Computed example of a mutant assay.
Amino acid sequence: MAEIVLKNINKRWGTFIGVKDFDLTIADREFLVLLGPSGCGKTTTMRMIAGLEDPTEGDILIDGKRVNDMEPKDRDIAMVFQSYGLYPNMNVYENIRFPLKVRKVPEAEHKERVMRASAMVELDEFLHRKPAALSGGQRQRVALARAIVREPNVFLMDEPLSNLDAKLRVSTRAQIKNLSHELKVTMIYVTHDQIEAMTLADRVVVMEKGIVQQVGTPTEIYDNPANTFVASFIGNPAMNLIEGEIRDGVFSAPNITVSRLSAADGKVTLGFRAEDAAMTDGDGEVSAPVYSMELLGDATMVTVRSGSSLMAIKAGKEYRSEIGAQVKASVPASICHLFDTASGARL
Protein backbone atom coordinates (compact mmCIF):
# COMPACT_ATOMS: atom_id res chain seq x y z
CA MET A 1 0.00 0.00 0.00
CA ALA A 2 1.52 3.34 -1.02
CA GLU A 3 -0.89 6.23 -1.25
CA ILE A 4 0.97 9.53 -1.59
CA VAL A 5 -0.62 12.82 -0.55
CA LEU A 6 0.89 16.20 -1.43
CA LYS A 7 -0.67 18.96 0.67
CA ASN A 8 -0.20 22.56 -0.45
CA ILE A 9 3.39 21.95 -1.59
CA ASN A 10 5.43 25.05 -2.43
CA LYS A 11 9.08 25.27 -3.41
CA ARG A 12 10.90 28.58 -3.65
CA TRP A 13 14.51 29.62 -4.11
CA GLY A 14 14.57 33.27 -3.03
CA THR A 15 11.99 34.99 -5.21
CA PHE A 16 11.94 32.19 -7.80
CA ILE A 17 8.91 29.90 -7.51
CA GLY A 18 9.66 26.32 -8.57
CA VAL A 19 6.34 24.73 -7.50
CA LYS A 20 3.25 26.58 -6.31
CA ASP A 21 0.25 25.30 -4.30
CA PHE A 22 0.56 21.67 -5.43
CA ASP A 23 -2.29 19.58 -3.94
CA LEU A 24 -2.78 16.01 -5.08
CA THR A 25 -3.57 12.51 -3.82
CA ILE A 26 -1.85 9.71 -5.75
CA ALA A 27 -3.73 6.46 -5.24
CA ASP A 28 -2.06 3.19 -4.30
CA ARG A 29 -0.80 1.41 -7.47
CA GLU A 30 -1.62 4.41 -9.66
CA PHE A 31 0.62 5.30 -12.61
CA LEU A 32 0.83 9.09 -12.44
CA VAL A 33 2.70 11.15 -15.06
CA LEU A 34 3.97 14.68 -14.39
CA LEU A 35 4.04 16.36 -17.80
CA GLY A 36 5.27 19.74 -18.93
CA PRO A 37 8.07 21.66 -20.64
CA SER A 38 11.57 22.07 -19.17
CA GLY A 39 11.55 24.19 -16.02
CA CYS A 40 7.85 23.65 -15.22
CA GLY A 41 8.52 22.08 -11.78
CA LYS A 42 7.83 18.42 -12.55
CA THR A 43 11.27 17.10 -11.59
CA THR A 44 11.37 19.35 -8.52
CA THR A 45 8.03 17.83 -7.41
CA MET A 46 9.42 14.32 -7.87
CA ARG A 47 12.62 15.18 -5.97
CA MET A 48 10.55 16.47 -3.05
CA ILE A 49 8.64 13.18 -2.93
CA ALA A 50 11.97 11.31 -2.98
CA GLY A 51 13.42 13.49 -0.21
CA LEU A 52 16.17 14.94 -2.42
CA GLU A 53 14.62 18.44 -2.06
CA ASP A 54 12.80 19.92 0.92
CA PRO A 55 9.48 21.70 0.29
CA THR A 56 9.43 25.35 1.38
CA GLU A 57 5.87 24.80 2.62
CA GLY A 58 3.42 21.94 2.73
CA ASP A 59 3.37 18.27 3.74
CA ILE A 60 4.21 15.03 1.94
CA LEU A 61 2.47 11.92 3.27
CA ILE A 62 3.18 8.33 2.26
CA ASP A 63 0.66 5.83 3.64
CA GLY A 64 -0.65 8.54 5.96
CA LYS A 65 2.79 9.19 7.48
CA ARG A 66 4.38 12.62 7.11
CA VAL A 67 7.79 12.07 5.50
CA ASN A 68 9.11 15.65 5.18
CA ASP A 69 11.87 15.00 7.72
CA MET A 70 12.52 11.40 6.69
CA GLU A 71 15.75 10.48 4.88
CA PRO A 72 15.38 9.35 1.23
CA LYS A 73 16.63 5.85 2.10
CA ASP A 74 13.82 5.45 4.66
CA ARG A 75 10.95 6.33 2.30
CA ASP A 76 10.79 2.92 0.54
CA ILE A 77 11.19 4.60 -2.85
CA ALA A 78 13.28 3.56 -5.87
CA MET A 79 14.33 6.08 -8.52
CA VAL A 80 15.26 5.61 -12.17
CA PHE A 81 17.02 8.63 -13.67
CA GLN A 82 17.60 9.93 -17.18
CA SER A 83 21.32 9.10 -16.72
CA TYR A 84 21.62 5.40 -16.01
CA GLY A 85 24.07 5.84 -13.10
CA LEU A 86 25.60 2.36 -13.52
CA TYR A 87 28.90 1.31 -11.96
CA PRO A 88 31.29 0.78 -14.90
CA ASN A 89 33.56 -1.64 -13.00
CA MET A 90 30.66 -4.02 -12.15
CA ASN A 91 28.91 -6.37 -14.52
CA VAL A 92 25.14 -6.27 -15.00
CA TYR A 93 24.49 -8.88 -12.28
CA GLU A 94 26.49 -6.91 -9.70
CA ASN A 95 24.91 -3.60 -10.73
CA ILE A 96 21.44 -5.07 -10.18
CA ARG A 97 22.52 -6.70 -6.89
CA PHE A 98 24.13 -3.56 -5.45
CA PRO A 99 21.01 -2.18 -3.65
CA LEU A 100 20.61 -5.53 -1.85
CA LYS A 101 24.20 -5.36 -0.55
CA VAL A 102 23.77 -1.75 0.61
CA ARG A 103 20.55 -2.61 2.46
CA LYS A 104 22.17 -5.71 3.99
CA VAL A 105 19.53 -8.05 2.56
CA PRO A 106 20.48 -11.67 3.48
CA GLU A 107 22.83 -12.99 0.78
CA ALA A 108 20.77 -16.15 0.36
CA GLU A 109 18.03 -14.03 -1.25
CA HIS A 110 20.27 -12.14 -3.67
CA LYS A 111 20.41 -14.52 -6.63
CA GLU A 112 16.68 -15.22 -6.71
CA ARG A 113 15.78 -11.51 -6.53
CA VAL A 114 18.36 -10.46 -9.12
CA MET A 115 17.25 -13.17 -11.55
CA ARG A 116 13.59 -12.24 -11.07
CA ALA A 117 14.30 -8.54 -11.76
CA SER A 118 16.54 -9.42 -14.70
CA ALA A 119 13.87 -11.65 -16.28
CA MET A 120 11.27 -8.87 -16.02
CA VAL A 121 13.34 -6.61 -18.26
CA GLU A 122 14.82 -9.42 -20.43
CA LEU A 123 18.45 -9.05 -19.39
CA ASP A 124 19.31 -12.67 -18.57
CA GLU A 125 21.78 -13.10 -21.46
CA PHE A 126 23.67 -9.89 -20.55
CA LEU A 127 24.32 -10.49 -16.85
CA HIS A 128 28.05 -11.08 -17.33
CA ARG A 129 28.62 -7.91 -19.39
CA LYS A 130 29.97 -4.59 -18.16
CA PRO A 131 27.89 -1.44 -18.91
CA ALA A 132 30.37 -0.30 -21.59
CA ALA A 133 29.42 -3.37 -23.67
CA LEU A 134 25.69 -2.53 -23.57
CA SER A 135 23.49 -0.36 -25.78
CA GLY A 136 21.60 2.62 -24.35
CA GLY A 137 18.39 0.62 -24.16
CA GLN A 138 20.11 -2.25 -22.35
CA ARG A 139 21.69 0.15 -19.84
CA GLN A 140 18.30 1.69 -19.13
CA ARG A 141 16.91 -1.79 -18.50
CA VAL A 142 19.74 -2.46 -16.01
CA ALA A 143 18.74 0.75 -14.20
CA LEU A 144 15.12 -0.47 -14.17
CA ALA A 145 16.13 -3.90 -12.86
CA ARG A 146 18.24 -2.28 -10.13
CA ALA A 147 15.14 -0.38 -8.99
CA ILE A 148 12.90 -3.47 -9.25
CA VAL A 149 15.23 -5.65 -7.16
CA ARG A 150 14.62 -3.41 -4.13
CA GLU A 151 10.89 -4.27 -4.23
CA PRO A 152 9.91 -0.72 -3.18
CA ASN A 153 6.40 0.60 -2.59
CA VAL A 154 6.94 3.54 -4.95
CA PHE A 155 8.81 3.94 -8.22
CA LEU A 156 9.93 7.40 -9.33
CA MET A 157 11.10 7.72 -12.94
CA ASP A 158 12.69 10.94 -14.19
CA GLU A 159 12.67 11.08 -18.02
CA PRO A 160 14.05 7.51 -18.27
CA LEU A 161 13.58 7.27 -22.05
CA SER A 162 14.96 10.61 -23.20
CA ASN A 163 18.43 9.23 -24.05
CA LEU A 164 17.03 6.48 -26.27
CA ASP A 165 16.38 6.58 -30.00
CA ALA A 166 12.80 6.59 -31.30
CA LYS A 167 12.48 2.83 -31.88
CA LEU A 168 13.98 1.90 -28.50
CA ARG A 169 11.78 4.46 -26.81
CA VAL A 170 8.66 2.68 -28.11
CA SER A 171 9.79 -0.80 -26.98
CA THR A 172 11.06 0.39 -23.57
CA ARG A 173 7.83 2.34 -23.04
CA ALA A 174 5.88 -0.88 -23.57
CA GLN A 175 8.17 -2.61 -21.09
CA ILE A 176 7.55 0.05 -18.43
CA LYS A 177 3.79 -0.20 -19.00
CA ASN A 178 3.96 -3.97 -18.57
CA LEU A 179 6.17 -3.60 -15.47
CA SER A 180 3.63 -1.33 -13.79
CA HIS A 181 1.02 -4.05 -14.35
CA GLU A 182 3.33 -6.83 -13.07
CA LEU A 183 4.77 -5.03 -10.05
CA LYS A 184 1.50 -3.50 -8.84
CA VAL A 185 3.21 -0.54 -7.17
CA THR A 186 2.67 3.22 -7.25
CA MET A 187 4.59 4.84 -10.12
CA ILE A 188 5.33 8.53 -10.64
CA TYR A 189 6.87 9.31 -14.00
CA VAL A 190 8.28 12.65 -15.18
CA THR A 191 8.39 13.51 -18.90
CA HIS A 192 8.09 16.37 -21.38
CA ASP A 193 6.91 13.89 -24.04
CA GLN A 194 3.13 13.95 -24.30
CA ILE A 195 3.05 10.61 -26.17
CA GLU A 196 4.72 8.92 -23.17
CA ALA A 197 2.19 10.59 -20.88
CA MET A 198 -0.82 9.56 -22.98
CA THR A 199 0.29 5.94 -23.40
CA LEU A 200 1.56 5.22 -19.87
CA ALA A 201 -0.56 7.19 -17.41
CA ASP A 202 -3.64 6.38 -15.40
CA ARG A 203 -3.70 10.14 -14.73
CA VAL A 204 -1.65 13.03 -16.06
CA VAL A 205 -0.68 16.23 -14.22
CA VAL A 206 0.08 18.97 -16.75
CA MET A 207 2.36 21.68 -15.31
CA GLU A 208 3.65 25.05 -16.48
CA LYS A 209 5.84 27.50 -14.53
CA GLY A 210 5.39 25.54 -11.31
CA ILE A 211 1.59 25.59 -11.48
CA VAL A 212 -0.71 22.63 -12.13
CA GLN A 213 -2.76 23.40 -15.24
CA GLN A 214 -4.92 20.27 -15.29
CA VAL A 215 -5.19 16.82 -13.70
CA GLY A 216 -7.10 14.04 -15.39
CA THR A 217 -7.01 10.81 -17.37
CA PRO A 218 -5.28 11.01 -20.76
CA THR A 219 -8.71 10.92 -22.43
CA GLU A 220 -10.09 13.76 -20.29
CA ILE A 221 -7.08 15.97 -20.94
CA TYR A 222 -7.10 15.22 -24.67
CA ASP A 223 -10.85 15.68 -25.16
CA ASN A 224 -11.43 18.58 -22.75
CA PRO A 225 -8.26 20.64 -22.24
CA ALA A 226 -8.67 23.17 -19.42
CA ASN A 227 -6.90 25.96 -21.28
CA THR A 228 -4.94 26.82 -24.42
CA PHE A 229 -1.64 25.73 -22.83
CA VAL A 230 -2.92 22.19 -22.27
CA ALA A 231 -4.59 22.18 -25.71
CA SER A 232 -1.33 23.18 -27.37
CA PHE A 233 0.82 20.76 -25.34
CA ILE A 234 -1.25 17.58 -25.73
CA GLY A 235 -1.73 15.88 -29.09
CA ASN A 236 0.40 15.26 -32.15
CA PRO A 237 -0.12 17.55 -33.90
CA ALA A 238 -1.25 19.94 -31.17
CA MET A 239 -4.79 21.29 -31.27
CA ASN A 240 -5.31 24.02 -33.88
CA LEU A 241 -5.87 27.33 -32.04
CA ILE A 242 -7.25 30.23 -34.08
CA GLU A 243 -7.86 33.70 -32.64
CA GLY A 244 -10.98 35.38 -33.97
CA GLU A 245 -14.33 36.87 -33.06
CA ILE A 246 -17.85 35.59 -32.41
CA ARG A 247 -20.92 37.52 -33.54
CA ASP A 248 -24.41 36.01 -33.15
CA GLY A 249 -22.98 32.49 -32.76
CA VAL A 250 -20.70 32.76 -35.79
CA PHE A 251 -16.90 32.58 -35.37
CA SER A 252 -14.86 34.45 -37.97
CA ALA A 253 -11.13 34.57 -38.65
CA PRO A 254 -9.12 34.67 -41.90
CA ASN A 255 -10.06 31.67 -44.09
CA ILE A 256 -12.41 30.13 -41.50
CA THR A 257 -16.07 30.74 -40.52
CA VAL A 258 -17.88 28.42 -38.09
CA SER A 259 -21.61 28.79 -37.33
CA ARG A 260 -23.92 27.58 -34.55
CA LEU A 261 -21.53 28.20 -31.67
CA SER A 262 -23.03 28.99 -28.28
CA ALA A 263 -20.87 31.74 -26.81
CA ALA A 264 -21.18 35.44 -26.04
CA ASP A 265 -20.11 37.94 -28.68
CA GLY A 266 -16.48 39.05 -28.54
CA LYS A 267 -12.93 37.82 -29.06
CA VAL A 268 -12.34 34.10 -28.57
CA THR A 269 -9.82 31.44 -29.52
CA LEU A 270 -11.32 28.52 -31.41
CA GLY A 271 -9.65 25.10 -31.20
CA PHE A 272 -10.11 21.86 -33.11
CA ARG A 273 -8.12 18.65 -33.56
CA ALA A 274 -6.64 17.79 -36.96
CA GLU A 275 -8.27 14.34 -36.97
CA ASP A 276 -11.75 15.75 -36.20
CA ALA A 277 -11.80 18.01 -39.28
CA ALA A 278 -12.12 16.66 -42.83
CA MET A 279 -11.11 17.80 -46.30
CA THR A 280 -14.15 18.28 -48.54
CA ASP A 281 -14.94 18.88 -52.22
CA GLY A 282 -18.13 20.81 -51.37
CA ASP A 283 -18.76 23.69 -48.97
CA GLY A 284 -16.64 23.90 -45.84
CA GLU A 285 -15.96 26.15 -42.89
CA VAL A 286 -12.33 26.48 -44.04
CA SER A 287 -11.34 27.78 -47.46
CA ALA A 288 -7.61 28.40 -47.81
CA PRO A 289 -4.51 27.66 -49.89
CA VAL A 290 -2.39 24.64 -48.98
CA TYR A 291 0.67 25.65 -46.95
CA SER A 292 2.25 22.18 -46.74
CA MET A 293 1.48 18.48 -47.31
CA GLU A 294 2.99 15.69 -45.22
CA LEU A 295 2.54 12.02 -46.07
CA LEU A 296 2.40 10.05 -42.81
CA GLY A 297 1.84 6.57 -44.24
CA ASP A 298 -1.58 5.98 -42.69
CA ALA A 299 -2.78 9.54 -43.42
CA THR A 300 -1.89 12.84 -45.10
CA MET A 301 -1.48 15.97 -42.98
CA VAL A 302 -2.67 19.05 -44.85
CA THR A 303 -1.67 22.42 -43.39
CA VAL A 304 -3.39 25.67 -44.37
CA ARG A 305 -3.05 29.20 -43.00
CA SER A 306 -5.47 31.43 -41.09
CA GLY A 307 -3.85 34.85 -40.74
CA SER A 308 -0.66 34.22 -38.74
CA SER A 309 -1.87 30.80 -37.52
CA LEU A 310 -1.49 27.43 -39.22
CA MET A 311 -4.30 24.86 -39.27
CA ALA A 312 -3.51 21.14 -39.63
CA ILE A 313 -6.19 18.83 -41.06
CA LYS A 314 -5.80 15.07 -41.27
CA ALA A 315 -6.91 13.58 -44.60
CA GLY A 316 -6.92 10.02 -45.93
CA LYS A 317 -3.60 8.51 -47.01
CA GLU A 318 -4.62 8.76 -50.66
CA TYR A 319 -5.41 12.52 -50.47
CA ARG A 320 -3.24 14.68 -52.73
CA SER A 321 -3.05 18.38 -53.47
CA GLU A 322 -0.44 20.96 -54.46
CA ILE A 323 1.10 23.65 -52.26
CA GLY A 324 -0.78 26.88 -52.98
CA ALA A 325 -3.90 25.10 -54.27
CA GLN A 326 -7.19 26.36 -52.79
CA VAL A 327 -8.86 23.67 -50.68
CA LYS A 328 -11.88 23.37 -48.41
CA ALA A 329 -12.33 21.61 -45.10
CA SER A 330 -15.27 20.79 -42.85
CA VAL A 331 -14.95 22.07 -39.26
CA PRO A 332 -18.44 21.69 -37.75
CA ALA A 333 -19.32 23.41 -34.46
CA SER A 334 -19.60 20.01 -32.73
CA ILE A 335 -15.82 19.43 -32.90
CA CYS A 336 -14.82 22.94 -31.78
CA HIS A 337 -13.48 24.10 -28.41
CA LEU A 338 -13.67 27.73 -27.30
CA PHE A 339 -11.17 29.50 -25.07
CA ASP A 340 -10.91 32.99 -23.61
CA THR A 341 -8.27 34.76 -25.71
CA ALA A 342 -6.94 36.87 -22.84
CA SER A 343 -6.66 34.20 -20.10
CA GLY A 344 -6.55 31.05 -22.23
CA ALA A 345 -9.20 29.42 -20.01
CA ARG A 346 -11.78 27.10 -21.51
CA LEU A 347 -15.20 28.75 -22.03
Rank of each mutant, 00 (worst) to 15 (best):
D54Y: 07
P289G: 10
S309P: 03
N153L: 08
N163F: 00
A201D: 07
A299C: 06
K20M: 03
S83Q: 09
A325Y: 12
V204Q: 09
G297C: 10
P37Y: 14
A166W: 14
R173A: 04
A312T: 11
L6R: 02
V258H: 05
V114S: 12
L179P: 13
L200E: 04
I234F: 04
M301G: 02
V19Q: 04
E94C: 05
S321H: 05
V80D: 01
E208M: 05
A166V: 13
V33I: 09
G316Y: 05
G14D: 14
V258P: 00
S38Q: 01
H181S: 09
V205L: 06
N224V: 14
P55L: 04
T303H: 04
L35E: 03
P332E: 11
D69T: 07
G271P: 01
G324K: 14
A132G: 06
V190N: 02
I96A: 00
L144S: 01
T45M: 09
P99H: 13
H128C: 09
F22Q: 00
M293C: 00
L295I: 09
R113H: 03
E71T: 09
D124N: 14
M279F: 05
E294H: 14
E159K: 06
K167W: 02
P152W: 02
G249V: 13
A274C: 11
V154K: 02
Y319F: 15
G136M: 02
K167Y: 11
V67W: 12
D21K: 13
A117F: 10
G316L: 13
L164A: 01
R75L: 08
P99G: 02
G266E: 12
V5H: 03
D298Y: 14
L168W: 12
M90Q: 05
E122D: 12
L168S: 00
E53M: 08
G266I: 14
A50Y: 10
L338A: 09
A145S: 06
V80G: 05
A299D: 14
T303A: 10
M207F: 06
S308L: 13
D54C: 08
N236Y: 07
R346C: 04
Y93C: 02
K209D: 13
E94Y: 10
A108R: 15
M301W: 06
R320S: 10
V102F: 11
I188H: 03
I9R: 04
T56E: 01
E151M: 08
G210M: 06
F229Q: 02
Q194N: 11
Q138S: 13
R305S: 11
T191Y: 06
N8D: 14
L296P: 08
A108C: 15
N227Y: 06
E220Q: 15
H128A: 13
I221A: 03
L270C: 00
G297S: 11
S38D: 10
A166R: 12
